[in-house]
Simulated scan of single mutants.
Amino acid sequence: MKKITIKDIATEAQVSISTVSFVINGKGKKMGISASVIKKVQDVAEKLNYRPSMIATSLRTGKTRSIGLIVEDISNQFFADLARVIEDEAKNIDYRVFYCSTGDDDERSEELIQSLLQANVDGFIITPTKNLEPSIEILLKLKKPVVLIDRYFPDQKVSHVVMDNYEGSYSATKFLINKGCKNIAVVNNTSEMVQMKLREDGYTAALKEEGIYDESLVLHMEYDSHDEEKIASIVKFFKKNVKIDAVLFLTNYLGLTGLRAFKNMNIKIPENISVISFDDHDSFKLHTPTISVVAQPIEDIAIQSIQLLMRQMSNMETFEIEKSLKKGTLIIRESV
């Protein structure tokens, strides 16, 4: 299909190219063009389904009406759902979203930020990797609007929207305790990002209050290890600690890996062990039995991240840094 240009509109409307240019760029009235001609040009543009060039618009206004969204893994359902809501919200204000996945790799994250800077995106929504703080600082020095989601750097002055990970983990662990579980394990990764530390801290605090915390029931696994390695680690851990009667998985991919390990070991849920995982997933709803979760407020996080970014893009000089903490939801299903 041929790309419609302002020359095509000028020919169809029987006006000059400059007249079309002024009307399309919202300067028709200022340039003394009559209301009837302005309407005629607009009607023809709509009829021909004219779409202005993003590059041309960028050159004229310095804006691309685009947002760079950098997440850990767009194939992970949590991030995919988050991205979908962010895209819907951006579309409502006539912005497009460029998606990128880091794989939790610092070097990859830095490359993506540079690429999006070259693409002249108007703002960034970022799930940062462990050592990305200096790159975020560069964006702030360049006066680029930035909002962090899912995780943040405690000492950095940048707006962020995250779940209250400590409370979510604390509440889930307390629920298991109230159900009579006394040997509750936790499975975490080794990233040491703030959200993972807070989840483990909530678990630890709940158990220590009851005087039943046992450090030997804490399993840490490498983020970038293969699935089979993770399964083997979980199998070894649970065979070594046969007294475990409940487990809290601190991410959905760890929870899914744990379910595969339990299947290999013929461990019955909830007869042999109660299970709660962070971050809901369709597989948890389809599994037999269904799996209890600490669900993140995805829509709230997505909507507020766009709102905070818009405030910055509207006026980088006067906006105030906002740090928002959203409460998660403990959804109890058949696994407890």
Rank of each mutant, 00 (worst) to 15 (best):
L48K: 05
A302W: 00
K27V: 02
S58C: 12
E89W: 03
V218M: 05
K157F: 06
F319L: 03
E110F: 09
I9K: 04
V242N: 06
L142N: 14
S171N: 15
D300G: 03
V336G: 06
N178K: 15
N49T: 10
N183D: 14
S233E: 14
V85D: 04
K3P: 00
E89F: 07
L219H: 00
K40S: 06
D300E: 13
M31R: 12
S305R: 00
I177W: 04
G62Q: 09
A302Q: 05
L132D: 07
I291K: 03
H220V: 00
T190S: 12
G202K: 06
L132M: 15
E89V: 09
A56E: 10
F249N: 01
I9V: 06
A261I: 09
N315L: 08
S216T: 12
I67Y: 02
K208Y: 00
N252I: 09
I234A: 06
D300Q: 12
N241R: 01
S58R: 01
F22T: 00
I149T: 09
I113H: 04
K47S: 10
S283C: 10
E107R: 11
A261S: 13
I212H: 05
H220T: 05
T204G: 00
D88H: 13
V121Q: 02
Y203W: 11
S314N: 15
N131W: 05
P145F: 06
V121K: 02
T102G: 02
A45H: 03
K144M: 12
N183M: 11
E209S: 07
T190R: 08
N264A: 14
S305I: 07
A80P: 06
F249Y: 12
K144I: 03
I303P: 00
Q118F: 10
E110P: 00
L69W: 01
S292V: 09
S34D: 09
S66D: 02
S101V: 01
L259R: 06
Y170K: 09
K179N: 11
L309A: 08
E320S: 15
V20T: 01
N315G: 14
N131F: 11
E334F: 13
I67R: 04
G211D: 09
M265V: 13
Q195K: 08
G62T: 10
S191F: 09
E89S: 13
E192R: 12
I136D: 02
V293W: 04
L217G: 02
F284W: 07
K236S: 14
I231E: 07
T127V: 15
R65C: 10
S18L: 08
I267A: 11
N241K: 05
I93P: 02
A119R: 15
E209D: 14
N25M: 04
F78Y: 13
Y50M: 07
E72Q: 11
T251K: 05
L219W: 07
G123Q: 10
E12Y: 05
T64I: 08
A261P: 03
K144N: 04
R84K: 14
I138T: 13
D214K: 14
I321G: 10
I125W: 06
I86F: 08
A10R: 01
P270R: 08
K91Y: 12
G103C: 01
T329L: 10
V275S: 07
Y166F: 15
L148Q: 12
I70P: 03
L132K: 05
I74C: 02
M313P: 01
R51V: 15
D224M: 09
Q312P: 05
V15W: 04
D300H: 10
S274R: 13
T329Y: 14
F78A: 04
I138V: 15
I291S: 06
T57V: 11
R151F: 03
